[in-house]
Design a protein around this nucleic acid. Structure first.
Lengths: 129, 129
DNA sequence: CTTGACTCTCCATTTACTGGAGGGTTTATA
DNA sequence: TATAAACCCTCCAGTAAATGGAGAGTCAAG
């Protein structure tokens, strides 16, 4: 199938598919005699793997590494395990940061309701922040 | 004071200070006759504002806009208010996403404990993900 | 007078794409 | 047969927010 259909099926944009190919996440597909990419259904699995891995926070570089393990016939389990651990901690850290930011914003919004623009003074850049 | 000291005091790296100047977040400071930047304490306030705004998720572009309002003598309150609203929602959205990712990772880690590498098969790229 | 710690500018790189220019191909319709 | 719409191609540039490094100038101490 050509790239448009493949993009529809996989939910990955045409631009991104070509990009993934360029950076080595997807193998170069066959071409029709006019040069169009001709994808096989098989690749959908690989793309799903990439999407799953991305969803848990893996970078494209990390995903490519896992794929390379596979291609060399090695089993990436322990590597993947430590990545999972790392991203779990990363997730927690980011969530904490965001919770803090959210709380701060809430305070600012609440304070903003009590203030009138007339209270603005030139000294502070913006007293809301 | 020169850039190194200013960087220490503000907690913003030298590189970043020069970058902020380049993109218009900081005014170009005076220079010594040998061309070194010569910062005044005054700028610390502006930098603190930038750090606060960044901490609640404002982009540098948004921060610059607020600063520009100020420089034109306008009061950016309602603008800032809508930005706060926007970033509050953004925060919530990101937190939800991260919670989901975290849960997924937990499931994967738990599953990984039950599996032995021997269970790996070639069909799936990595059954952990 | 030289060594080390500063500083300067300019350029390249990072991530994960996205947008656009300029052009070829295929298919349906007039 | 012409042509228009809807595909597809490659290549180049740009995004955000810095960071890293090269190569060179400056300043203070020993």
């Amino acid at each position: 199938m050509q790239i448009g259909e493949f993009s529809e099926l996989s939910g990955v944009s045409i631009k991104t598919l070509r990009y993934y190919e360029e950076v080595g996440l997807l193998p170069a597909p066959n071409r029709t005699k006019s040069g169009y990419r001709d994808y096989s259904n098989q690749l959908l699995g690989r793309l799903q793997f990439i999407k799953n891995a991305k969803a848990v926070g893996f970078s494209l570089r990390e995903i490519r590494e896992i794929l390379f393990y596979r291609e060399r016939g090695e089993i990436p389990c322990s590597h993947v395990n430590s990545l999972l651990q790392k991203h779990f901690e990363e997730c927690q850290r980011k969530i904490r940061e965001l919770e803090e930011a959210k709380d701060t914003i809430l305070v600012l919004i609440t304070r903003a309701k009590r203030l009138k623009p007339a209270d603005c003074n030139a000294e502070s850049i913006c007293h809301l922040v």
